[in-house]
């Protein structure tokens, strides 16, 4: 519980964060930037869990634990994604989305 800040403020923040992530995922031209956008989405959900837990259900810890799992799995995800992108970079010397268009329609 943070004094002076209501749950609505923080939920607004996480929603904005989430939609920035979705927007970035759709519009970015660089694979690494897309990965960063996905991290924004995951972090928005993690904050959501912690905030719901602290403000609404302060006697339990489920949401906090869930966010720890999210952080750990997000790390695994980005490690794997970066390694695939690196193997792609070795072939083409590029991390642009427009180079991943040989498979289409």
């Amino acid at each position: 519980m943070i004094s002076g800040i209501s749950i609505y403020h923080i939920l607004t923040l996480t929603t904005i964060l989430f939609f920035i992530g979705v927007y970035g995922f759709i519009t970015r031209k660089n694979l690494i930037a897309i990965l960063i956008s996905i991290e924004l989405i995951l972090n928005a959900s993690a904050i959501n869990f912690v905030i719901f837990n602290t403000y609404l259900y302060p006697d339990m810890l489920q949401g906090v634990y869930y966010s720890i799992f999210i952080v750990a799995i997000a790390a695994a995800e980005s490690a794997l994604a970066v390694s695939i992108i690196v193997s792609f970079y070795r072939m083409l010397a590029s991390v642009d989305v427009k180079d991943t268009e040989t498979l289409k329609y």
């Binding site: 959501n48 869990f49 489920q62 949401g63 792609f88 991943t100």
Partner: peptide, 28 residues
């Protein structure tokens, strides 16, 4: 093959992000 991997991992993580955001609302 690399292209397929990139497409799969990026859409899968986006999907799990969406699902998580939904689960967080249900939890709330």
């Amino acid at each position: 093959s690399a292209e397929a991997g990139i497409k799969l991992i990026l859409s899968a993580t986006l999907a799990s992000g969406l699902a998580l955001f939904g689960i967080s609302f249900l939890y709330g």
